[in-house]
Design a protein around this nucleic acid. Structure first.
Length: 600
DNA sequence: GCCGTTTTCGGCCCGACTGTTTTCAGTCG
């Protein structure tokens, strides 16, 4: 059973409890446990195997024993009892936006929906037949809402369909630029997962500071790229669907309370809850309007124009948005404010990056993978724009099946000459140092897809997996370690092999990989390619704890890709990486020293 | 049902918007 299925099961129990009128805190406990399972870094089944279920936040002895029963027998008696008497159909309806447990239950009752499989189609028939408006408590608006919710579900625009971070950023940028045209807008910023730089984004949340919210809302809903206005408030909020099908929520606040709103709508759900609970203990209640002191008789809300002051009044240091996931950042911010050790990290910045070591040029490397679009000269010019000191050319290795060993060596000799020429001739007037690398396939047996005589021509090797993904965890780990053992290999490329929303990564024993990399001066790549972002932030955090060094690279295949480095930096930051954890913040000479230095 | 730097009992985040209501429940983030 996957984490996703387990989380869904726990949510369905919460929904059942809601319909039964069960204590709302019990409901919240199940929802929280579901959330926790969803965000778990390892498979819950594996945790169960190791007897570590209760290490999951929000999973106590009761839920742990239910899950135990689930893994042992495939069923949970208690869950069956909770759900008994409720129509299975109602759980299918929960996927429809706007329909919660109570609405789902009532619809099933009134429309005689029973089976989970047919619930959606039956509901659709009833809604288009005008039956829903006749139900007491429902009206024509509810019917319309349900129909449009069903349409969204059909188009696959449910919560799971998330967009890649750079795409979301581009959309948000357009909206923010449009908002800036309105004179009443003082400033506008991304909120939520976008501001936290999460790898995938559901809805786009944007904040605007203004003294005239009505004007801004009027301006916003006149945006030409809007397909539909979902809701339109008076002062605080408007929700729309763009023509691209993406939802944008705009939240408005007066400038004097803008910091409070940024704070309120940036953190992940569990960060927000944890911070509000922490504040409650100190006698404060938090909201997007500011901080309310519950001990004051008048309970006036203190406003905050800046987030820093908001955190300071709670006795905390300002927490960078990327860290606001409730994974220890509140405790760290407290220690920072108190001047104690174990405080917040000094996160690496985009400006710290001195070079990109994973770039594909159009040098005719005759690979079976893809070649880059731009010449080495064009790439160096762009690297100069970005303020880099060095740039590593790491094309794919020449195709093994289509070339003899000698042909491969010959190609690599020519590539070496091209790089040397750039280094010492006047062609490179731009003073970005080229480095001669290669991204080499790790074959199924763990050997590199380039002969020894070719490897000696290179300054460094990125070893990556591009085939045979379906080995067992043990086999895959042995394969990778064998490849990393070669003295020319400095970088393990896109280490998990995941492709966001299309492919899970392969399985690796990370403790072994981390230990090996630390001992042998191997750097884990943080690949900034939008659907890779690999290492993922959770593993970056682990690597940091192990003291393993990482290198942030773009895997660019064109000069226009080089600025994507910022998304790799974002992953590093989300993983609490500081400058010292990242290799390519070093200047050229130090970096070359590191590249030559083998392990041990 | 969970959880513990004032707690193993007694708390548990907060507000906006909608629809169908005469004062609020449901949903969402």
């Amino acid at each position: 059973m996957t984490n996703r299925e387990i989380a869904e099961l726990l949510r369905s129990i919460a929904a059942a409890y809601i319909v039964r009128g069960e204590d709302r805190f019990r409901v919240m406990a199940y929802q929280r446990a579901a959330e926790s399972v969803d965000h778990a870094t390892s498979e819950v089944k594996d945790l169960w195997d190791d007897g570590k279920l209760k290490e999951l936040a929000g999973v106590g002895s009761a839920i742990a024993s239910h899950l135990d029963e689930l893994f042992k027998t495939g069923r949970v008696k208690h869950f069956d009892e909770v759900k008994s008497g409720l129509p299975p159909a109602m759980f299918a309806l929960l996927d429809i936006p706007g329909i919660g447990p109570k609405t789902a239950f009532r619809l099933c009752q009134e429309l005689q929906l029973k089976e989970e499989k047919t619930a959606i189609s039956q509901l659709e028939k009833a809604a288009s037949g005008g039956l829903i408006r006749k139900i007491e408590g429902f009206g024509s608006e509810s019917e319309k809402r349900i129909l449009s919710g069903l349409k969204a579900l059909k188009r696959g625009q449910t919560k799971e369909k998330r967009m890649l971070l750079p795409y979301a950023f581009a959309l948000a940028k357009e909206v923010i630029e449009y908002l800036a045209e309105c004179p009443a807008v003082i400033r506008a910023d991304p909120l939520g997962s976008l501001r936290r730089m999460v790898a995938t984004i559901g809805d786009i949340d944007i904040a605007a500071s203004t003294k005239n919210p009505k004007d801004v809302i009027r301006h916003f809903i006149n945006y030409s790229k809007i397909r539909r206005v979902l809701s339109r408030g008076e002062e605080a909020l408007a929700r729309v669907i763009l023509q691209s099908g993406r939802q944008v929520d705009l939240r408005l606040q007066q400038p004097e309370a803008y910091g409070a709103m940024l704070q309120y709508f940036t953190g992940g759900k569990s960060h927000n809850i944890a911070l509000r609970e922490y504040a409650l203990q100190k006698g404060f209640s938090l909201s997007e309007h500011g901080i309310k002191n519950l001990r004051d008789t008048d309970k006036k809300v203190k406003k905050y124009a800046a987030e820093e002051d908001f955190y300071r009044d709670l006795g905390l240091k300002w927490i960078p948005p990327e860290l606001r996931e409730n994974i220890g950042e509140i405790e760290a911010a407290l220690r920072s404010a108190q001047g104690k050790p174990g405080g917040l990290p000094e996160l690496v910045n985009s400006g710290d990056i001195k070079g990109d070591l994973h770039v594909h040029s159009n040098f005719p490397i005759e690979t079976s993978h893809d070649e880059g679009e731009n010449s080495p000269e064009e790439i160096l010019a762009k690297a100069k724009d970005l303020g880099y000191e060095y740039l590593g050319f790491a094309e794919h290795n020449p195709s093994v099946s289509q070339h003899s060993k000698y042909k491969i060596i010959d190609i690599l000799k020519r590539k070496q000459e091209v790089i040397e020429h750039l280094k010492y001739s006047r062609v490179n007037k731009i003073f970005v140092n080229p480095i001669n690398g290669l991204e080499i396939d790790i074959k199924a047996d763990g050997t590199l897809a380039v002969p020894e005589e070719g490897l000696v021509l290179l300054d460094y090797v990125i070893a990556s997996i591009h085939s045979s993904f379906n080995l067992s965890r043990e086999e895959m780990t042995a394969r990778v370690l064998r490849a990393l053992d070669h003295p020319k290999v400095r970088i393990f490329g896109h280490p998990t092999g995941r492709k966001i929303s299309t492919r899970e990564g392969y399985e690796l024993d990370w403790e072994k990989i981390f230990a090996f990399c630390k001992r042998r001066n191997i750097w884990l790549e943080i690949n900034a390619w939008p659907d890779r972002l690999d290492l993922p932030d959770t593993l970056v955090r682990e690597a940091v704890k192990y003291g393993v060094k990482m290198i942030i690279c773009t895997d660019a295949h064109a000069v226009s890709h080089l600025p994507l480095i910022t998304y790799g930096v974002a992953v590093a930051r989300r993983g609490w990486a500081e400058k010292e954890d990242i290799i390519n913040v070093l200047g050229y000479n130090k970096f070359m020293e590191m590249i030559r230095k083998g392990g041990e």
